[in-house]
């Protein structure tokens, strides 16, 4: 990546992950069933992002 990124460029993915995390944290707390599954998928998604970044998508 040659050009410098804008603030939005730097923070758009972290922002999206932050919204995802909050969704997961709250959904499991407010209900059961589907809402529990939402919390597993969203927060489990963080682990998947970390694993992929560390091992697969490195430059």
């Amino acid at each position: 990546m040659k050009n410098k990124q804008t603030k939005w460029g730097i923070f758009r993915w972290p922002f999206l992950l932050s919204v995802t995390s909050l969704t997961g944290l709250i959904s499991g707390l407010t209900g059961t069933g589907v809402l529990d599954v939402v919390s597993w998928v969203t927060l489990g998604g963080l682990i998947i992002v970390i694993t992929l970044s560390a091992f697969l998508f490195s430059t």
Partner: peptide, 19 residues
């Protein structure tokens, strides 16, 4: 940590771990 994250990432794609 989130504030000082920005300058490190100016020239890097999100979640880059350089080999």
């Amino acid at each position: 940590g989130v504030v000082v994250y920005a300058p490190f990432m100016r020239n890097l794609r999100f979640a880059t771990v350089r080999k």
